[in-house]
Design a protein around this nucleic acid. Structure first.
Lengths: 346, 346
DNA sequence: CCGGGATTTGACAACGTTGTCTAGGGGCTA
DNA sequence: TAGCCCCTAGACAACGTTGTCAAATCCCGG
């Protein structure tokens, strides 16, 4: 470490503390603290001297120490699958806005859909003593969180419920949305409808599958095994699944895609397909109205999910202590054309 | 605070400390510290006793205290415009991945393009003593950061340069990309080309405008005042600007849109326009290949920007101390059709 | 000019951890 | 068996802040 001054009279890499400010202003440590925090009981003159010392030294309060002393970090953690996913961006932003309005910062982590990584992140955040957690779970066993919750870390799960633990959760109506989507296709005359969804261990995928099956059953329609394909949302897998369904001897005449990533790939496959095939996708996405045909979707408002979850979290932090809640937000079917295509032979 | 035990033998909201663990295990405080941190010099037998006490009490190290003691927070801050913007999601994720590979967490904040809010966020992060900062500046004066940088907060600016301060910066080749985009339109026969961009105080908007003007000048083409419109990217504003350019007595026959938000609105306007109008957009976006016509874009790799910036940041944190760098990443023109439309009369 | 209450100020401990330093015990060598 | 060294273990201070409390100072009316 060099002794060279750099802008201030302090060693590079060493920040002045309240003690330094106090010495320079010729006052006590606590007085500096009072000035910094705008506490009452300081003469205008003293305050001015302290302020001068603060600017002269470039002092900035060390919040690490403050946090240690006060026991509150004024920060919350958000663990989600992938910040780069257009579904989670708005959710994340919404959580951030709520946090901001409560004076808290947001620490963010992507689990990459890996339960081990989720746990690692969550526990790292707990070690930082975040005041609360918003978690989009990747795993399905959250018992590891029980001691943390018991110790006072408010936790709200979003988009998918917690596993093997009783906690607040905010969900979309995945079942109802899927059911509506498939009913919509059935109403337009389809009888052979394929479903391409996410990995079956993911709650939303299961619920949407259930909605699909229920809608089919309600209409008295059978579901062939080959019409359902669950797995990773990687384009290759989805493309293969869609192609297979379309090439079968009794091909599906409509597709229900289980999330935005699947939908995008499905649109690409259908564009290159000779026959028109109807499509309804779960999740809205930008430009869904501009592709041809415009894509009919079941929209869920991810920002709303985030806002609701964060709101619930801060209610908890304010000490509201009712039993864990389960909130379910409605979805909305937005007909745009791709779902209104009838089956080939009428 | 209730005295009721909840899962452990501790008061709700009070976490056990190393002292508690030490007492329970019948060892000294420092021994617990050693076990927790995997330091050598502990008998297997002692270690086992400590581990037992840790599990029994549900102890988790308090990183706030650790941070205070060690002086490093193992976290970096990222301040950007809007986490919900599809351009920043991947950037953010890339920064996070690099941080993760260095064992650091990411604290995230959206400035909403408001300089005051940017400063507020940045200084809050400095108060938390983040080890480093990645900033997508909203303002154009960052002298307020000088004391922080001098005090050792590594800082890298991304997407736009810092104002009135000498610091590392990672940019896209906005000028070159814009120039290529407009040259592409000119090569397809256009002479009256409109430019709709972001607010002129934003660096990228200025650079793209400069690229536009240069390309026009290089081709010996005049630029009418009414062909250039800079301002907020709100759909209404963009729609009005585009409509005006298309309705003028000598209407533009092609549009160059200054970023992805502008492009999306432009596509909507052009879809409803009677004559075909060419379009090239700055920034690639999902489904750009699926709308009709497919949108020709100048792509910049936002994840690459993020990765590069974070990489540079951690080089700084590792003590590399060369003078501030300015890195410029190339952009790529992706012709897809919308830019290849010729002007109406040949 | 003095008593008394209000106001300003500072000394000190505490938050929970880690770095330093020293004590004690065990094993090895001469 | 004495002497040495190494290894384990713990006492203690320190990180920079805030809460508590007591001391010092001020202002006012009598």
């Amino acid at each position: 470490m060099t002794e060279t001054a750099r802008g201030t009279s302090h060693r590079y890499g060493t920040r002045p503390t309240m003690k330094d400010v106090a010495a320079r202003a010729g006052v006590g440590l606590k007085t500096v603290s009072r000035v910094v925090n705008g506490e009452p009981g300081v003469t205008p003159d003293t305050e001015r001297r302290v302020q001068e010392a603060i600017t002269a030294l470039g002092f900035r309060r060390n919040d690490s120490a403050r946090i240690l002393r006060k026991g509150r970090t004024a920060s919350i953690g958000l663990v989600l699958e992938d910040l780069a996913d257009p579904f989670y961006g708005p959710l994340s932003r919404a959580v951030e806005e709520v946090a901001r309005s409560h004076g808290a910062l947001l620490i963010n982590g992507s689990s990459a859909e890996d339960p081990a990584r989720e746990q690692e992140l969550v526990l790292a955040l707990c070690a930082r003593r975040v005041d609360g957690l918003v978690v989009i779970p990747a795993g399905d066993d959250h018992r590891y969180l029980a001691p943390e919750i018991a110790a006072g870390v408010a936790t709200v799960f979003v988009d998918r419920p917690a596993g093997r633990i009783d906690a607040d959760v905010v969900l979309s109506d995945n079942f109802g949305g899927a059911q509506a989507a498939v009913a919509h296709l059935i109403a337009h005359g389809h009888r052979r409808i394929g479903f391409i969804g996410d990995q079956p261990r993911i709650h939303t995928a299961k619920e949407r599958l259930r909605g699909y099956r229920t809608a089919m059953a309600d209409a008295g329609l059978p579901v062939a095994d080959s019409w359902v394909s669950l797995g990773p949302t990687a384009p290759d897998r989805v493309r293969a699944a869609a192609t297979a369904m379309l090439a079968a001897p009794e091909p599906v005449t409509a597709l229900f895609s289980g999330n935005n990533r699947v939908t995008v790939t499905a649109v690409r496959v259908l564009r290159d397909h000779p026959r028109p095939v109807a499509l309804v996708g779960f999740d809205d996405f930008e430009l869904a109205d501009l592709v041809h045909p415009a894509i009919t979707v079941v929209a869920q408002d991810s920002a709303h999910l985030g806002r609701t979850a964060a709101g619930l979290l801060f209610r908890r932090l304010d000490g509201i202590d009712d039993p864990p809640q389960r909130l379910e937000l409605p979805t909305r079917l937005i007909p745009r054309g791709s779902g209104e295509i009838g089956p080939p032979e009428g």
